[in-house]
Structures are given as structure tokens and as C-alpha cells.
Amino acid sequence: MTYLGIIITFIFINNFILVKFLGLCPFIGVSKNSESAIGMGLSVTFVTATASVICYLSYYMLLVPLKLEYLRTMVFILIIATLVQLIEMVIKKVSPALYKALGIYLPLITTNCAVLGISIINIDESYNLLESFIAGISAGLGFTLAIILMSNIREKLSITPVRKWFKDVPITFISAGLMAMSFMAFDNNLLINLGLTA
């Protein structure tokens, strides 16, 4: 698959939230206002991109030569946990302004399914290093797109009368469902029509 194909696949066709349901907890939890949604989205994009590269390298340079492929789940989750800590420390030192904006979201990302998900998908799809990196960024951008759209919907919903039992979480799920329906317009035919399949 071409690089553009990977970008379109991970942002639109296999959107991590609306199609694959990866990273649903922060999607419901942090989408109350658009400012924090952008912060969360960008932090996730940053971590998915970095984690894809590091997990790729450690899988092919460490686990495969040692014939320990079955340990990948354990190794990846530890890498991600360490990476998130490291990124937090680096950002705190290098750019206090960025740390202030992203700080509270970074620790939450360790248990975000999207990060472990993209690392495992990269290995399962046997992408090369550059493809993994692009897939990581695109998956993060897809997450950002969905969470920003959702936060705008929720800002509108908060001033709209909603039936008592549907307030807050249920109506969020239903709006996400309607959003997912519109994302169904993007499917593999799009890739075929654009001539992007290998």
C-alpha cells in the first residue's frame, strides 16, 4: 500500500475511534470542551508516532533475533509506559508551555488502547519503519479529528434540551454513532478508485 493509502486508511476508513473503537475511554472522558480535546488529541498523536517507531525497532532488532516474539505484548506495554514517562519529563524540561497544555493528559495515555493497538497493528500488517511511523501519525490524527468533532458536538449539546435519561454519556454515544455512520462513506472502494492499493 502506498503512503497516501496508509494515511487515508488510518484517518478515515479505519478511524481508530469510530470504526475500531480503540481509545474510547478518553474519547468519552475528555471530549467535554474543544480545548482539552485538542490537547488530548495532539498528545495521543505524539505518543502513537513515537511508540510506533520504538516498538517497531525493539521488535525487529531485539525480539526477532532472540526468538522471543511471543513476549511482544509485555515488551510493548512496558515500552509505552516508560516512553510516556520520558516524554513527560522531556516536555517539562524543554517546553514548559507545552507541558502546561498537555501535562494532565500524558499519564492517561499509558492505558490508552490506541497506542498499544497501533504498535501491534504495525507488526501484524508487517509495515516497514517509515510505514509504521506514518501509520502511527495518521492513527493519532484520526483520533484527534474524531475527538475534536465530538467536543464541538458536545459543546452544542450542553445548551440543547436533552431528555433526562439521555443526558451526558448516552447522548454522547448516540452522537458518536451518527458520526460513525457518516464515516461509513469512506470504505475500501475509495482506495481502489484513487488507485492507491498495492
Binding site: 439521555f166 454519556v169 454522547t172
Partner: peptide, 25 residues
């Protein structure tokens, strides 16, 4: 068909959560 698709899962979960809140209250 829509219930078997990802969109249906989100819709169904929303209605189920509302029903569960209603019943438990």
C-alpha cells in the same frame, strides 16, 4: 444491518446506557 456495523454498536450502547440509568433510578 446497521446494528452489526460499528455505528450501530455506538447507537445501541447509548440506548442501553440510558435504559440502564432509567431502570436503576
Amino acid at each position: 444491518r446497521v446494528l452489526a456495523l460499528p455505528a450501530g454498536a455506538l447507537l445501541f450502547m447509548g440506548y442501553m446506557k440510558a435504559l440502564f440509568d432509567y431502570l436503576s433510578s
